[in-house]
């Protein structure tokens, strides 16, 4: 139930003055749905969000995604050089 699906914001709707809710259209690999964007108020068209129960709960940080994949690509080599408890832990630890 905590399932979240990544999708691209392709359109922002004009908020309805009766409730002021920010909504838009999100593309999930070709399937488009109306999604509530009230919890990602600064989102722009072209950005990716994670949608849960019809509500976008976060904007995806593209840079963090790329960094993670790059780090993983280095793991094989690093394990050899440093042994298991090198300084990888610190560098791949806390995000902000």
């Amino acid at each position: 139930m905590c399932l979240g699906v990544p999708g691209e914001v392709v359109r922002l709707y004009e908020p309805d003055p009766r409730d002021g809710l920010l909504e838009g259209e999100v593309d999930f690999g070709g399937v488009r749905r109306r999604v509530c964007l009230a919890c990602v108020p600064d989102v722009r068209v072209g950005e990716y969000v994670i949608v849960h129960a019809g509500v976008a709960i976060t904007r995806i940080d593209e840079q963090a995604a790329q960094e993670m994949l790059a780090e993983l690509a280095r793991i094989g080599e690093i394990e050899h050089e440093l042994g298991p408890e090198g300084d990888v832990l610190e560098s791949s630890g806390e995000g902000q």
Partner: peptide
């Protein structure tokens, strides 16, 4: 605590 899911999770949440 470590944050593996950095593309979605910020320390202070949303």
């Amino acid at each position: 605590v470590r944050n593996q899911y950095r593309r979605s999770v910020r320390r202070g949440g949303n």
